[in-house]
Amino acid sequence: MPGATAVGITFDEGVVFASEKRIAYGNFLVSKSTKKTFPITPKVGATCAGLVADMQLLSLQISALAKIRKMDLKRDVPPNTIAKMMSNMMYERRYFPLLTQVIVGGMTDKPVIYTLDPLGSVLPDEYAAVGTGAEMALGVLDPQFKENMNEKEATDLAVKAVRSATMRDSFSGDGIDVLVVNKDGITEFTEDVK
């Protein structure tokens, strides 16, 4: 599987996702500008490590299913439902799996994130990291994460965690995409390589 580093962090009024932009297969650098953060609904986002094509397919299908579900419910689809929809789709394909690790989350009464493996296991958490650089990113997240951080603190920590992984993981690098979900919706921006 190709390498990558992606993190998700909850903060007092939302969640932040960050991912680097590189796709590498073995010694071959395929792309330096791949987006691995995905808005799923106006209140739910996701990020991934692994095969980006599989995550692009998954995010498009779940986004469409969420729109249909929203019309049925006549209200926003919560992040736990989106995570369960992703889990079901990944489990249904367990014999020909979508080779991607996913962090998905958003806002309900409180910010939540879930980590999903290629077979659809759903693990709730306050922060998470996936991909080949996950150990380096968690080395930053574990000691520095604290509950009820503000948006700037969480965003800075997410960028710092991904940046630390790009320093040591040759499969990660070339800038950082950030997606923030809060009560106002989704904001996206890119941090350049420094």
Results as ranks from 00 to 15, higher is better:
Glu147Pro: 04
Pro97Thr: 14
Gly120Arg: 08
Ala161Ile: 13
Asn148Gly: 12
Asp117His: 02
Val52Tyr: 06
Pro2Val: 09
Thr81Arg: 13
Ala128Phe: 04
Pro143Cys: 10
Met1Thr: 05
Thr100Gln: 00
Val77Phe: 01
Asn88Ser: 15
Ala24Ile: 07
Ala137Ser: 09
Thr132Pro: 02
Ala134Ile: 04
Lys74Tyr: 05
Thr47Ser: 07
Tyr25Ile: 07
Pro118Ala: 11
Lys70Gly: 07
Ser121Val: 01
Leu73Cys: 03
Leu157Lys: 03
Arg75Asn: 12
Val159Glu: 08
Tyr91Glu: 01
Glu191Arg: 14
Val104Asn: 01
Thr34Met: 06
Asp76Thr: 02
Glu126Gly: 05
Asp12Met: 13
Phe96Cys: 15
Asp184Arg: 11
Tyr114Ala: 01
Lys36Thr: 02
Leu116Phe: 02
Arg75Val: 09
Leu179Gln: 05
Ile176Met: 10
Asp177Tyr: 07
Gly185Gln: 06
Leu98Asn: 05
Glu13Asp: 14
Phe28Tyr: 11
Ser33Leu: 06
Phe171His: 08
Val102Glu: 00
Asp76Cys: 04
Glu13Ile: 05
Lys67His: 09
Asn80Thr: 03
Ala49Ser: 12
Met136Cys: 10
Lys32Pro: 02
Leu119Cys: 08
Glu147Gln: 12
Phe38Pro: 00
Gly120Tyr: 13
Arg22Ala: 09
Ala6Cys: 06
Ala24Thr: 13
Val181Tyr: 05
Val193Gln: 11
Ser172Gln: 05
Asp177Ile: 09
Leu116Ser: 02
Arg93Cys: 06
Asp12Leu: 14
Leu51Trp: 14
Leu157Ile: 11
Ser31Val: 12
Ile82His: 00
Asp184Phe: 05
Ala137Phe: 04
Leu116Met: 04
Pro78Leu: 11
Pro97Gln: 11
Ser164Ile: 06
Ala137Ile: 11
Asn182Lys: 13
Met167Trp: 05
Lys84Ala: 14
Glu92Asp: 14
Phe17Cys: 00
Ala137Glu: 07
Ala158Ile: 01
Val44His: 01
Thr10Gly: 01
